[in-house]
Deep mutational scan, measured.
Amino acid sequence: MASQGTKRSYEQMETDGERQNATEIRASVGKMIDGIGRFYIQMCTELKLSDYEGRLIQNSLTIERMVLSAFDERRNKYLEEHPSAGKDPKKTGGPIYKRVDRKWMRELVLYDKEEIRRIWRQANNGDDATAGLTHMMIWHSNLNDTTYQRTRALVRTGMDPRMCSLMQGSTLPRRSGAAGAAVKGVGTMVMELIRMIKRGINDRNFWRGENGRKTRSAYERMCNILKGKFQTAAQRAMMDQVRESRNPGNAEIEDLIFLARSALILRGSVAHKSCLPACVYGPAVASGYDFEKEGYSLVGIDPFKLLQNSQVYSLIRPNENPAHKSQLVWMACNSAAFEDLRVLSFIRGTKVSPRGKLSTRGVQIASNENMDAMESSTLELRSRYWAIRTRSGGNTNQQRASAGQISVQPAFSVQRNLPFDKPTIMAAFTGNTEGRTSDMRAEIIRMMEGAKPEEMSFQGRGVFELSDERAANPIVPSFDMSNEGSYFFGDNAEEYDN
Rank of each mutant, 00 (worst) to 15 (best):
A237T: 12
A323Q: 13
F420A: 15
P303Q: 06
G200I: 08
S297I: 04
A472D: 02
Y219L: 14
R74K: 15
K91W: 03
P95E: 14
R355W: 12
R156E: 05
L307S: 05
T232W: 03
I316E: 03
I257N: 09
F412K: 09
Y78E: 06
A442Y: 02
R441D: 07
S353Y: 08
D16S: 03
E24C: 05
N205D: 09
R213G: 03
S9C: 02
S392W: 09
A22H: 07
L56S: 10
S3E: 00
G185Y: 05
T433C: 13
K48F: 07
M448E: 12
S165R: 00
Y281D: 07
P419Q: 05
Y219M: 12
Y10W: 00
S467H: 13
R391S: 03
I444T: 14
D101Q: 10
K214Y: 14
N397P: 00
Y40G: 01
E46K: 06
N224G: 04
S245T: 07
A153Q: 10
G362H: 08
E469G: 09
F489M: 11
L381K: 02
G86M: 08
V280Y: 05
N250E: 04
A70F: 01
P277L: 05
R361E: 02
S413A: 09
A451E: 05
Q327C: 03
R221D: 02
M447Y: 09
T350C: 12
D34Q: 10
M448V: 06
S50H: 11
N397R: 15
Q58W: 08
Q415S: 15
R400C: 08
Y385V: 10
I138K: 11
D421F: 04
K90V: 09
E252W: 09
V408A: 14
A493E: 06
T390G: 02
K90A: 09
K273F: 05
D340M: 09
N492V: 01
F489S: 05
E244R: 02
R213H: 04
D72H: 08
K87E: 10
P453Y: 01
M456S: 13
A70Y: 06
R117G: 08
R118A: 10
Y52P: 09
L276V: 13
Y10P: 06
V285G: 05
Q42P: 09
F206E: 07
R162V: 12
I197F: 10
R175D: 04
D112M: 08
Y487E: 01
E24W: 02
K357D: 08
V109I: 12
K357R: 12
D101K: 05
R175H: 02
D240C: 01
L47T: 11
Y10L: 14
T396A: 14
I347G: 01
S310W: 01
S376H: 12
E14P: 00
G180M: 08
G86Q: 13
V29P: 02
R361M: 01
F420V: 14
G288V: 07
P173K: 13
R117Y: 06
A472E: 12
S478T: 02
N124Y: 13
G158H: 13
G86A: 11
Q405N: 09
T424P: 03
S359K: 15
R121L: 14
Y289C: 11
A278N: 13
Y52W: 07
M136W: 01
P474N: 02
N224F: 08
D16Y: 08
A129T: 14
